[in-house]
Amino acid sequence: MITYEMPLLLRLMTRPELVSTLKRTAGIIFDQGGIIRRLDSLGTKDLPYRISSHGAVHRRASQFIIEFVVPPSSIKILKDEFERDIDVVRSRIYKVEELTPVECTLHEEILPPAYRKDVQEMVELAKKKFKPKFKNNTGLSYYPFQK
């Protein structure tokens, strides 16, 4: 069972219209033998850029996220349906990937560069690249003769 996630932008509508559009959208998913796991509203917000769809330019949209499960073969049908729905400004379907647990390494990352392990490794690597330098063996920190 693959879970899909769909951000859905709907044009500005009255509440009953919005409800009916959402119901229609959900109905299309149910018709394909799917179920919805999560239905979240992000509110009506300004879009980051103008979006023109179905002959109108949109600057604001009601934003939703729907997480659902359908057979993979139905994805094409769903995309087609939502594209042709005139109330939908934009919709995309992504696969939800399970989050793998991440170990926190912040305390190592915020150390000064010289103490960081990866930096130390890089320094070691760079040292290997240096060519051997000629030693004067004069016991002085400077070159005593005129260059």
Binding site: R15, L18, V19, L22, K23, A26, G27, F30, I35, I36, R37, R38, L39, D40, S41, L42, G43, F64, I65
Partner: peptide, 25 residues
């Protein structure tokens, strides 16, 4: 998880809930 599924039976309620409480991630 089955009891949390949104199906055609409880879709109205789910839509109402969603519209009532907006989420900010």
């Amino acid at each position: 998880k089955e009891k949390y599924y949104i199906t055609s039976e409880n879709i109205d309620e789910a839509i109402e809930n969603a519209l009532r409480g907006e989420v900010d991630y």
